[in-house]
Design a protein around this nucleic acid. Sequence first.
DNA 1: ACAGTGCTGTCAAATTCGTTACAGTGCGGA
DNA 2: TCCGCACTGTAACGAATTTGACAGCACTGT
Lengths: 288, 288
Amino acid sequence: MPPQRSATVAERLREKSGELTAAERKLMVALFANYPMAGLVSITEFARVAAVSTPSVLRLAKKLGFAGFPSFQEELRAELSAQLQNPIAKHDRWAADAPDTHILNRFASAAMENLSGSLKLLDHRAFDATVTLLADRKRKVHVGGGRITHAIASYLVTHLQMARPGVSLIPAAPSFWPQYLLDIGKPDVMVIFDIRRYDARMLEFAASAQERGARIVLITDQWISPIARLAVHTLPLRIEAPSSWDSNIVPLFVAEALVAATVNAAWRDTEARINALEGLADAGRRNR
Amino acid sequence: MPPQRSATVAERLREKSGELTAAERKLMVALFANYPMAGLVSITEFARVAAVSTPSVLRLAKKLGFAGFPSFQEELRAELSAQLQNPIAKHDRWAADAPDTHILNRFASAAMENLSGSLKLLDHRAFDATVTLLADRKRKVHVGGGRITHAIASYLVTHLQMARPGVSLIPAAPSFWPQYLLDIGKPDVMVIFDIRRYDARMLEFAASAQERGARIVLITDQWISPIARLAVHTLPLRIEAPSSWDSNIVPLFVAEALVAATVNAAWRDTEARINALEGLADAGRRNR
DNA sequence: ACAGTGCTGTCAAATTCGTTACAGTGCGGA
DNA sequence: TCCGCACTGTAACGAATTTGACAGCACTGT
C-alpha cells in the first residue's frame, strides 16, 4: 500500500529533495534520468546504475515512506500503468441522464474496452495482408460464420459484393457445405468468423477448403479458434459483454474496416463498380 | 541479449502466435491485456495472473528467443523506456503500433465517436420502454431491416429467439411482405432498422403493420427515417464512418443491449429457456 | 486398442534478491 | 588530537525467484 495515495513517487522525491543525502541524490538523478523505468529493475541493478550500494536504495525507499523496495517498485508500476491507460473510456461519453449502472452504459463501456483491447491484440500487418488478398480480383472470396456470426459474415458479403465481384456467402447449414466446396479453388480466399463455442464442423470444413488450395483468414476471439492452425492470417478480438452472450460489435467493426480498406486498396476498379451500382439502383427505383 | 533487436516482443509474439500452445496463448492474452506492464512483474505473479504455471512462462520466453525470463523482462523494459522517451511514439500506443492514419485507427475513433454520440442522442426511457415491449411474451416480435441492415435484424432475431418465443425475421425480399403481413396482429411489436437511403417500400410496409395494430419501434440514424411518425419509440443513432458506406456498429450495439436488457427483464422465464436450449445443443453435439 | 508425441503442472535445486547488522569513513567542533 | 555524528559500504542471512528434471495427461495417428 502506498503510504500517501495522493502523491506520486516523483512528487514525494522532489518534496524531500532538500533532506536527501549524497547517495540518495545520486539515486534521484538516476531515477529521473529514465523515470520511472530506472526504478523497475532489481535493487542490485538500480544501485549499480546509480553507483551506490544496495542498502542506500533501501534507505531511500524507507525515507519516502515505503515498507521496502518491493512496495516502492509496486507504486512505480502502478503509476506507470495508470499513465499508459487510455483516457478513452472515460465517463463523458455516457448516456445523458441514465445511471452508470444502466445496461446501455455498462454495455457501452464494455464495447469501448473490447474495441481498444482488440486494437492492442490485433496485428495490423495481418489486417493489411488480408486486405491485399481481398482486393485481388483474381481470387474469389468466400465468407462464412457460425450460428451466431453468420449474420456478421452476411454483412461482410453484402458490402464486399458492392466493392468487387466473386464474393459469396457460405451457407449457414452444414448440409450444403460439401457441394459448396466444389466451387472453392486454388487462389481463393476464405474468411471465417469463429468465436467461442468453436464449431468442430467448421474446422473440418476449413481443412477441406485449405486442401483445395484456399487461403484462410480467421476472425476469432481472444482465446483463438483451432482454425488458426490452418489460417494464413488470424485476427483475434475481444468480445466480452455484460450479457448471456458474447458481443459481436468488434467483429462487425473489423468487417467494416476490411471493406473500407479493400475499397481503398483498389479504388480504380471499385469506383466504376460503385457508380454502375448507383445507376442500376436509380433505374430500379424509377421502374417501380 | 535480445536475439533480434529489430523486433519488439509484441511483434515476435504475434509472429509466433500460430505456433503457440494453449498455456502460451493464455500468457499472450494476459500480456496484451495490459501491455507491457503485465510482464514487468515477477514470473510468479505473471503466471498467476495468466493462470498458468511458472515454467510455462519460462517456456514462452525461450520460444521467443530469450535466454530466460529476466532477459525477456529486460527487453520489455527497454521497449517501454524507448517508447516513453520518444514523444512521437506516445500516441500510437492506443492502437497496436500502426500509424494514426491507419484505417483501423480512423475507423476505431469514428466508432467511439458514434457510440458516445449515440448515447447522448438516445433517450434511455425509450430504450427501457422498448425492452418492456420485447419482454412481454404475450406479444409476438417481428424484426426487419433494409438491404444493408437486414443482417443486423437477423442478428437481433437469432438472439431474441434464444431469449423468448414468438420472434421472427421479416424477409429481405419485399415480394414476401404481403403474405407476411397476415401474421401480424394486435399486440405485436415490430422492430425496424431503417438507416439513410430510407426505403419507401419499408415505410408502406410499416404503415400496413401499424394499421393491423402492431406497435412499431424504429432504430434509425440521426436524420431520422420518416417511419418515426408511425413508431411508438424511436432510437436515433450516429453512424458516420470513414468509408463509402455507413457504419452499423452502433445499431448492432443497440441490438445487443436490447437483448441483454430483455433477458434481464424477464429472467425467470428466460433462464429455463436458455437451459433447455443448452440441453438441446449438447444432445445435438452428441448425436453427430 | 495402443504406442508415441507434445503439452502442462509439480517439485526441488540453484541462483538471485532484499534486508539486516555492523564496521568503516569523513567531517566538524572541542 | 580526539570525539561524536551522520552517512556509506561490506558481509551475511533469509526469502523469493528462476530454472531444470520429472511425471501425468490429452491427443494423434497407426
